[in-house]
């Protein structure tokens, strides 16, 4: 698995053991077909017209970065800058078009509100299914369940179908679930801002505890203050390219300055 010349090897030990995520020149190209033919007749018409008009669109272009184990990386940028695509690639649900990506360790994700929750089923029911999705062992789930519900402050509502949950309740359950079991890497997309202030504090405290225990965290957020306070480093994505990378405060300041101006 050694990629000579990609990472400099410090003397002694596994040279890459401390890098949790290493991305080199990642690119993601989508084909923008303004009308994607989904039926045969449309496809046939497309053939006669000389193929469907597709326009290549690089959602990510030449993105390189690495995250050291136990550190937090923040990703900021405007809507449509490729933040979510990048996180999906890190989560493995989207394949990059170009580049190299190495992810070392088990992954827990919290991508969007109520990800994978079935509206008709109760919170308890959905937690069991999500636990299977996140591959949390049955025994662990039994042990952690009450604590998780308490953390999410949903004791009274856990047996109610989640279609009656508010956005805040969904966010709380999702966060409690994806942090209930310590995985090596935690990927979080744009969900911290939903809970109220007290819950945001609780989330921050838990994230800090996870970071201290060696968990690597990647956060996509418009909440620049959260990125500033939680993350060690940050990258600023602009139309799919890295516009700035470095210490979180510096990058966030630059991003804020550009957005204000």
């Amino acid at each position: 698995m050694n990629a000579p010349g990609v990472l400099s090897s410090p003397p002694g030990g596994d040279p890459e053991a401390d890098v949790a995520i290493a991305a080199h020149h990642l690119g993601k190209r989508f084909s923008l077909r303004h009308e994607r033919p989904t039926t045969l007749s449309q496809e046939l018409l497309g053939v006669f017209r000389g193929g469907p008009a597709t326009e290549p669109f690089w959602a990510l272009d030449d993105v390189s970065f690495s995250v050291i184990r136990g550190r937090a990386l923040g990703i900021v940028g405007r809507n449509g800058s490729g933040k979510s695509s990048l996180l999906k690639i890190l989560a493995g649900t989207l394949a990059p078009t170009t580049g190299t990506l190495v992810v070392r360790g088990t992954i827990s994700t919290m991508l969007q509100l109520g990800a994978g929750f079935h509206p008709e089923f109760t919170g308890r029911n959905n937690v069991h299914l999500s636990a299977a999705l996140l591959d949390i062992p049955e025994a662990t789930l039994r042990r952690e369940f009450d604590g998780m519900v308490a953390f999410a402050e949903l004791e009274r509502f856990i047996d109610v179908p989640v279609k009656y949950y508010s956005a805040g309740m969904l966010a709380r359950l999702g966060f409690a679930l994806s942090t209930a079991v310590r995985e090596d890497i935690l990927l979080i997309d744009e969900v911290l801002g939903v809970g109220d202030l007290a819950f945001q504090r609780k989330c921050e405290a838990r994230m800090r505890a996870l970071l201290t225990s060696g968990v690597t965290v990647v956060i996509v957020s418009h909440d620049v203050e959260a990125v500033r306070s939680l993350c060690d480093e940050a990258i600023w994505l602009d139309r799919g390219r890295i516009r700035a990378a470095g210490p979180a405060e510096v990058v966030v300041d630059a991003y804020c300055a550009a957005s204000a101006g």
Binding site: M1, L26, G27, R29, G92, A95, P96, T97, T98, G99, T100, L101, V102, V103, R104, G105, T106, I107, L129, A132, L133, D135, E138, D184
Partner: peptide
């Protein structure tokens, strides 16, 4: 032509490990 991407997840599980899911 675009060089093929290389993606390595060290902890990818097999279908059999997802039988509970």
């Amino acid at each position: 032509s675009v060089p093929a991407p290389v993606v390595i997840f060290t902890h990818r599980k097999t279908l059999w490990q997802y039988r509970r899911l």
